[in-house]
């Protein structure tokens, strides 16, 4: 934890510097891939958050909506509860690389580790890793900056990520990171062969307590043209007091 908070501290300083310095084209270009990813991850990591939102899965038959509420503490603790009628009360607790699933009808807790993190969350185009945040991208990927492009009118760094290990969902990723807000505006996820698997577009970003948070993003499976998952955050509070006991079996099975 100490190491984690010191990292947050450093990232926060970087973020503050970014906010108080007018960003010229010159210092935009001078950022390394590591710095871009660090600034982007500083936006994604909060001390804590409480949010409500929905997955909206759309395919050729129409739309299915799954609503949820989530509480997170730091980077590796998340408790998510589904609130739509079909899955109401089902919960997912993630602590680091471990996932606990709670099924209220069976009053059963299933403990998953390892590969299960790659599974789709409730039939969406998002994996548990997509949802709750993987380990730091810099821990997993080599990063190369490949110029700048404009996405939806925003200047973005084009960052290419290549996995250092085979134990990742996406061996290659390409991110368009907003040069001012340090939020991914767009992402492509590739197989090892280089085939495009998924693409993600961030459609709305809000700023809460100095953090730029994507609150509406669209995931599309490249193999299914008529299918997409829209991930919406309807409300979010960050850096609010969250009891550590929230991430316990007691709370999960409550």
């Amino acid at each position: 934890m100490k190491r984690y908070f010191s990292k947050i501290y450093v990232l926060n300083i970087l973020l503050l510097l970014a906010l108080i310095q007018p960003l010229s084209a010159q210092n935009l270009k001078s950022l390394t891939g590591r710095e871009i990813i660090e600034r982007m991850e500083a936006n994604q990591v909060q001390k804590s958050s409480v949010s409500e939102g929905a997955f909206i899965i759309t395919d050729r038959f129409g739309m299915r909506k799954k609503t949820f509420k989530a509480v997170s503490l730091g980077k590796d603790r998340t408790l998510l509860e589904f609130t739509n009628p079909e899955e109401a009360g089902q919960k997912i607790l993630r602590i680091g690389d471990e996932i606990y699933l709670y099924f209220p009808e069976a009053e059963d807790i299933i403990h998953l580790q390892g590969s299960a993190l790659r599974d789709s969350v409730m039939g969406s185009d998002l994996s548990y890793e997509d949802l709750t945040g993987e380990k730091g991208l810099l821990d997993i990927y080599k990063v190369v900056v490949n110029g700048m492009e404009t996405v939806n009118g925003q200047k973005c760094y084009v960052v290419e990520l290549t996995a250092k290990t085979r134990k990742v969902v996406y061996p290659k990723e390409k991110l368009w990171v907003d040069a001012e807000l340090f939020v991914a505006r767009k992402a492509y996820y590739y197989a090892l062969s280089g085939r495009l698997l998924k693409e993600m577009d961030v459609e709305k970003v809000i700023t809460v307590k100095g953090k730029n948070i994507p609150v509406r993003l669209v995931m599309r499976d490249a193999m299914k043209k008529n299918s997409k998952t829209v991930f919406v955050i309807d409300s979010i509070k960050i850096d609010v007091p969250v009891d550590r006991k929230t991430f316990s079996l007691e709370e999960l099975s409550w």
Binding site: L112, S115, A116, R118, D119, S120, V169, A191, R195, L197, D221, A222, M223
Partner: peptide, 14 residues
């Protein structure tokens, strides 16, 4: 034992 295999882009095998 229980194991999930990521069968992207075709889905998952459990």
């Amino acid at each position: 034992f229980f194991r999930q295999f990521n069968a992207n882009p075709y889905g998952a095998v459990t």
